Simulated assay, not measured.
Amino acid sequence: MRLVADNLSVARSGQIFFSGISFSLSAGEALVVSGPNGVGKSTFLRVLAGLLPDSDGSVRLEGADVETVAEGAHYLGHRNGMKRELTVRENLEFWRDFMAPGDSDANSVRLSVLEAVKAVGLDGIDYLPFGYLSAGQQRRIAMARLLVSHRPLWILDEPTSALDVQSQEMFSGLVAGHLGSGGLVVAASHHALGLDNARSLVFQPGAEAALGDRDPFAAEVSA
């Protein structure tokens, strides 16, 4: 399985966010997207996820039984995608059913709602309304959404925002497990995510972007 981008370019209202981006990720690999605020990182992720049209180029998920990248991806943006009035369990049940794949092999990889809540360290709070949780707890439940239905590609925008150090380590473990099972990850961040086997895409002002063969925060992780 591979995620392949060919000559991706995006412009909005006459402003070029990025152009000429090409890369491929194989199963078990991650791409860490970094750069200053406002240079197009979130726009890039939304293009990958199929939420925004690309102005030029193409992106595809090869070797997966899906017609579009969107069908094979989980997207976790700045917002958690949960209803405050619904309980944790009700929110996760909705996402499980909404994104339920048709094939039994993919279904067998997913966790139950209670297993997913436990995996993010919040066992026993599934009955609480989502709006009752702290910002960090809400983010962890949003991560549990990745576990209740299987998607080979995780597209994550600042996934560790509002998380303490222990929760960040928990997140790294979840991602490591996903990569270890042959999944793919594209994540935007301003700091280390603790990802192994990660490449980099660094955005700069002026619609410039540079690909690298190592995590841009590797030195920070080892420090």
Rank of each mutant, 00 (worst) to 15 (best):
H150Q: 10
S22Q: 06
N107H: 12
R110K: 14
E90I: 11
H190V: 00
F217L: 11
R199V: 01
G38I: 08
W95C: 05
A119M: 11
S108G: 13
A116K: 12
E62W: 06
R2T: 08
H191V: 00
A135I: 02
L52H: 05
E62R: 09
L201P: 04
L153F: 10
A144Y: 10
G212Q: 07
G20Q: 03
L51T: 08
G77F: 03
M143N: 14
S172E: 02
E208M: 02
R12N: 01
T160D: 10
Q204N: 02
N80D: 15
D97T: 12
S104D: 11
P159E: 08
V66I: 09
S13R: 05
E93V: 15
A49T: 03
E93W: 14
G57A: 04
A176M: 05
R145S: 13
I141C: 12
G50A: 09
G20W: 02
V10G: 00
R89E: 15
R145K: 15
H178D: 02
V120W: 11
R2C: 04
D157V: 10
V39S: 04
V33P: 07
S222L: 14
V117H: 09
R79I: 10
R2P: 01
R2G: 03
G183T: 02
G77N: 06
V109L: 14
S55P: 02
E85H: 13
A210N: 06
Y132C: 05
T68K: 06
M99R: 14
M143L: 15
G173M: 01
L114S: 15
Q137K: 08
G28W: 03
L76W: 08
H74E: 13
G121F: 13
I21P: 04
E62S: 10
D56C: 10
G35Q: 11
M99T: 06
L48K: 06
S134T: 05
S22I: 07
E169W: 04
S200G: 14
D97E: 15
L51F: 13
A210D: 04
S149L: 00
A219M: 08
S26T: 10
S24Y: 01
K83I: 13
E71N: 12
L179P: 02
V59R: 06
H78C: 12
A162D: 07
E90K: 15
F130A: 15
G180T: 03
E67V: 11
F98S: 10
G183Y: 01
N37E: 03
G194T: 07
L163T: 00
L147H: 11
V175C: 08
H78I: 13
D215R: 07
E158P: 09
S108Q: 14
G50N: 09
D157T: 13
L163S: 09
E90M: 13
E90G: 12
F44Q: 06
L111Q: 14
F171D: 05
S134C: 09
L52C: 02
V88P: 14
P216C: 06
A73K: 11
H178A: 04
G35C: 08
A73S: 15
V120L: 08
R139K: 13
A198F: 01
M143D: 10
M1S: 09
R199S: 12
Q204A: 06
L184F: 04
N7M: 00
T43N: 01
V59D: 08
L111I: 07
G40W: 02
H190F: 01
L25M: 04
G212A: 05
N7T: 02
L146K: 09
H150R: 15
V109S: 05
M1D: 00
H150W: 14
H150I: 04
P205K: 00
